[in-house]
């Protein structure tokens, strides 16, 4: 009866995908265009999509880094920023911007909005779905831009690329070092947890549920199940019928989640360096606790916000200092696979 169960799961997921697509379709009215430069998008261009709220501090570096990697056009949704994010993005020549005052949580943390934009503009393109605090790196990213990576992925018959989020943190209390827009955030946030990640395979969606890292160590040691999910599939050769399920941790159709090798070998993979722990985290946490827009069940995460508001020091003696992607690759945090 195994095949029957399999078939029914497939059928269920198919309808789930359609439901989510329909949901995105309904939510399209919540978006109003600020500036639409999507006419610039050339065939084959690599796109990035992101929902942002008050990220003026992070965006200059975010844009610079991903432009350098070869992202040709950015699709942004601004969710009621009041720190100049909107004005800043509108000025950028390679950005198309929409805005909405509606609830981030009710839009599945911005995904419904992005799904709609990607249906419209990302069909047939390799598309990178990121948060503003995520910086994509992969093996050889300093010498081989994204077009080289996606070319190679296509040649090896893959249409998605797996990564893990790596929480970067400073040494000393998180608020001690002030970050100014445009600077390299990894000057200060140069420490990470190298080897405390725990992986389970999710039977239904077949993605890897990765937990661990500094947040699990410092904030969820008593409740590991609630520790944040670190695995992501941010880079996908998009089709308008695809949809992300839960942040970019997993998507449908589920074959796209199989970014790992199960026979013992290593696929090529990358990392999302997470710049969450800039000095702004302390004030932002206090605000997020108030808003309750970041978790489906926000009350359960109050102690997490409380710990962040206290300006913690996340560093420990066993923290590792970031030196290069080769270091991360050698430590097994990402892999070249056979892309040498």
């Amino acid at each position: 009866m195994g095949w029957l169960a399999e078939a029914s799961t497939k059928y269920r997921l198919r309808w789930k995908r359609r439901r989510l697509l329909f949901r995105a379709l309904r939510k399209r009215r919540q978006l109003s265009p600020v500036i639409d430069r999507t006419a610039q998008i050339a065939p084959g261009a690599i796109l990035a999509a992101s929902t942002v709220r008050n990220e003026a501090v992070r965006l200059p570096f975010f844009l610079e880094h991903h432009r350098k990697l070869g992202v040709a056009h950015f699709l942004f949704v601004d969710n009621a920023s009041d720190d100049g994010t909107r004005e800043y993005l509108a000025q950028q020549p390679d950005v198309s911007l929409w805005s909405t005052p509606e609830s981030y949580r009710l839009s599945r943390f911005g995904l419904d909005w992005l799904t709609w934009l990607m249906i419209r503009h990302a069909h047939g393109h390799w598309c990178l779905t990121l948060d503003a605090d995520e910086i994509l790196i992969y093996p050889h990213h300093d010498t081989r831009p994204l077009p080289a990576l996606v070319d190679w992925l296509e040649r090896t018959g893959r249409s998605s690329f797996g990564t893990m989020m790596l929480d970067m943190y400073p040494k000393g209390p998180v608020r001690a070092q002030e970050y100014r827009a445009g600077e390299d955030p990894f000057e200060a946030l140069c420490w990470f947890d190298a080897g405390n990640y725990m992986i389970q395979k999710q039977p239904v969606h077949q993605n890897l549920w990765i937990q661990g890292g500094v947040r699990a160590r410092c904030f969820f040691a008593d409740e590991p199940r609630r520790a944040p999910t670190m695995g992501k599939v941010p880079l996908v050769k998009w089709n308008r019928r695809y949809v992300y399920i839960n942040s970019t941790h997993a998507l449908l159709p589920r074959d796209l989640n199989r970014v790992y090798d199960e026979a013992g070998g290593e696929e090529t993979s990358g990392l999302l360096l997470h710049t969450k722990f800039l000095h702004t985290i302390v004030d932002k946490s206090a605000e997020e606790k108030e808003r309750g827009e970041h978790f489906a069940n926000s009350a359960l995460y109050e102690s997490y916000y409380d710990a962040l508001v206290e300006n913690p020091d996340l560093w420990c003696e066993a923290s590792t200092k970031l030196t290069s992607w080769r270091q991360l690759e050698a430590m097994g945090l990402m892999s070249r696979g056979n892309w040498i």
Binding site: I199, Y260, D261, A263, E266, E267, S269, G332, S335, N338
Partner: peptide, 19 residues
């Protein structure tokens, strides 16, 4: 490189190697 892709690093579990 071929060995890395087909056999991987035994004892390592990560986002792209989960035997």
């Amino acid at each position: 490189a071929v060995e890395r892709r087909t056999r991987g690093r035994p004892g390592l579990y990560m986002q792209s190697r989960f035997p």
